[in-house]
Amino acid sequence: MENMVAKLSIPVGISACLLGQKVRYDGGHKRSKYCLDVLSECFQYTPLCPEVSIGLSIPREPIRLVGSAQDPRVLGVKDPSLDVTDKLKEYADDVSRTQTDLCGYILMRGSPSCGMERVKIYHENGMPNVSGSGVYAAQYMKNNPALPVEEEARLNDAVLRENFITRVFAYYNWREEVMAAPTLHKVIQFHSRHKYQLMAHSYEGYKQLGKYLADEAAKQPLEEVLEKYIVDLMTHLKNRANRKSHTNVLMHIMGYLKQDIDTETKQDLVAAIEDYRTERVNLITPLTLLKHYLKRHGSEYIQSQVYLDPYPHELGLRNYI
C-alpha cells in the first residue's frame, strides 16, 4: 500500500478517541485498528473531541441526551444542571468554519455528542425514550450536508464501508477537479466521469442530475450550481449500491465493447456478470475481466469512468461486496 501514501493524503475528521487518544469520559479510548492501520494509508486525520474542546475534563462526569428526538439537551447524568448543549452546537459551528478542507468525517458510535444515529435519548425521569443523533454530530452534519460522514462501527459492514469510502473519494475528486478553479465546464466534465458511479447508487439520481446539467445549470449562477450539484450527488451516493444496480452498470459498460470483442469473449463476460448477480462471486471478479478488455478496446470516455477505479485497489473493498 506504499503507493497510496505517495499519491494521497485526503483530509478526514475523526473522533479523537478512535485514534487511541485517551479523551473519553472514563479516561479511556476506543482505538480503531481499521482506521489506524488501513485507512491511514490514504487519509490524513484531523482528530477532534468536542467534549474536551468545550472544556470538559478527563475523566469527567458522563453526559447523555435528554428530551425529544428533535431537540434533545445534553445533560450530566449525575448532575442534570450541567447542560453543554449550546456549547457543543457552537463548537460544531466553529469546526465547520475552520476545518474547511475535510473530505469526510468518522464519528464515534453511541456518543451523546458524536453519535451519528441510534444514540439513546432519555426522559427527564431517567427512563429511556427514543433514539437520535449526538448534538455535535447533528449540528455538524446540518452545516455540511454534502460531506461524507460515517460511524466507525458501521465500517465493519462491507457495503457501508465501501459506500463511505466511495463518497470520500468522490468528494475529494470534486475538491481537486472542480473547486480549485470552478467553471460549469468542469462540473460537466466531473459529472461525465462519475456517471456510472452515480448510476450504481441511484438510477433516478443519474437521470436527474444529467437533466439538470443539460437543461438548467447554464441559466443559474455558478455558485448555486456548485452547491446544488455536490449536495445532490453526495445525497444520491448515500444510497447503497447492490448486486442488481452493479449488474446494470456492468452491462451498460460492457455495451461499449460489443463491436470489438468476439462471441466467446462476450459469453465469458456475461457469465462472469451473471455469477456476480447470483452471488457466486464478488464484484471484483467480473470487474477485473471487464477492465482487461476495456484497456484493449475501450474508448477514452469509458476508460475514464471513475466507477472502474473509484479508490485505490489496495483497499480491497470490492473483494467483499
Rank of each mutant, 00 (worst) to 15 (best):
H185G: 02
H191W: 11
V159D: 15
A153C: 09
N156H: 12
R154A: 04
V168D: 09
H194R: 13
N163M: 12
A153P: 01
R193N: 03
R161Y: 01
F190W: 12
E152N: 08
V178L: 11
Y171I: 04
A181P: 03
V168H: 06
E177Y: 06
T183A: 10
A170P: 01
R167P: 00
H191M: 12
A158G: 03
A181W: 14
V168W: 02
S192G: 02
R161V: 01
A153V: 11
Y172W: 09
N156G: 05
R154E: 06
T166L: 11
I188P: 00
T183V: 08
A170Y: 02
E177G: 00
F169L: 07
F190M: 09
F164H: 14
K186T: 02
H194C: 04
R154Y: 04
A170Q: 11
I188W: 03
A170M: 07
M179S: 02
R175F: 00
N156T: 12
A181D: 15
T166Y: 10
R193V: 01
A170E: 08
Q189N: 09
Y171N: 09
T183C: 08
F164E: 13
F190K: 06
Q189E: 13
A181M: 15
A180M: 12
V168Q: 11
D157F: 02
F190N: 06
L160R: 14
E177S: 05
V159L: 13
Y171M: 10
A170W: 02
E162R: 15
Q189A: 03
V159A: 12
L155A: 07
F169S: 05
T166P: 01
L184W: 08
L155S: 08
I165V: 10
V178W: 12
R161F: 01
H191D: 15
R193H: 03
Q189P: 00
K186I: 00
E162N: 12
N173F: 01
E152P: 00
T183F: 07
I165G: 01
F164P: 07
F190P: 02
V187L: 07
E152F: 00
L184M: 08
I188T: 07
W174P: 03
I188V: 05
H194G: 04
A153L: 13
V168M: 08
L184T: 08
V178T: 11
E177M: 10
L160V: 04
A158N: 14
R175A: 00
L184N: 10
A180F: 04
E152M: 05
V168N: 10
R193T: 04
T166E: 15
N173E: 13
S192R: 15
F164N: 12
V159R: 15
A158F: 05
H194Y: 12
A180S: 12
M179F: 00
W174Y: 09
H185Y: 10
Y172R: 09
Q189H: 06
T166K: 15
I188K: 15
M179E: 07
S192K: 15
A181L: 14
Y171E: 08
Y172A: 04
V178H: 13
I188G: 00
E177R: 15
